Simulated assay, not measured.
Amino acid sequence: MDALIRLYIEQLQSSDKNIRNAGYTGLLAAADEVVDWAYECWDLLKNDLTHSDHHRRTIAVQLLSKLAKSDPEKRMMDDFPSLMAVTRDEKFATVRHSLQSLWQIGLAGPEQRELLIEGLCLRYEDCIDEKNYTLIRYDIVHSMRRLYDQVPEPFIRQTALDLIEKESDVKYRRKYAGEWKKAVKGPT
């Protein structure tokens, strides 16, 4: 592992938000492609999913989601429930940032895609009694759109459309469908 990656990983643990954010942005950029250092920080990130600092919980979900494509051992298959738990966080910003990044797990392969879609469907259903359920549902539909833009498999599109049809409020059904229509035209 290169020294810069090691530095970024160390910075993630800083209590100084500027240092922590430097580590986060550095790792996020470095993980654009498949990397060989994912397991050097995997356990640290997994532990941060339950950290007392909501910023660290958010960073952990975002980085683990991005690193899923660099996970030949398929650890994500076992760790996915821990990421989904953060979509029920006490901090709503953490919920949204988590939901908006999970789609990247689907880039790792068919098993991970199926697990992700199943998890997002369950979350779509069970959020109905939450205060901001319409935003949660929007983020889920948007995540499916982002995944479909990268991996245009018909089951992703059909699943999203099926979820949208379950929305009883016509206003929100239209809003969610509008987000999906953007994807059908092509990536944004």
Rank of each mutant, 00 (worst) to 15 (best):
Y39Q: 08
E40W: 00
E40V: 00
E40N: 01
E40M: 01
C41M: 03
W42V: 03
W42C: 02
L44F: 01
L45T: 09
K46Q: 10
K46L: 12
N47P: 00
L49Y: 07
T50S: 13
S52W: 03
S52P: 06
H54W: 15
H54E: 08
H55E: 15
R56Q: 14
R57D: 08
R57C: 12
I59A: 07
A60Y: 06
Q62R: 15
Q62H: 06
Q62N: 11
L63M: 11
L63G: 15
L63I: 15
L63C: 07
L64F: 14
L64Y: 06
L64K: 08
S65Y: 04
S65A: 15
K66R: 15
L67I: 05
L67P: 06
L67W: 06
A68R: 01
A68P: 09
A68W: 08
K69N: 04
K69T: 10
S70H: 01
S70I: 04
D71S: 08
K74L: 07
R75I: 09
R75W: 05
R75D: 01
R75T: 10
M76H: 09
M76F: 06
M76W: 02
M76V: 13
M77A: 10
D78K: 14
D78V: 04
F80I: 14
P81W: 11
P81R: 04
P81G: 03
S82I: 02
V86K: 00
V86D: 00
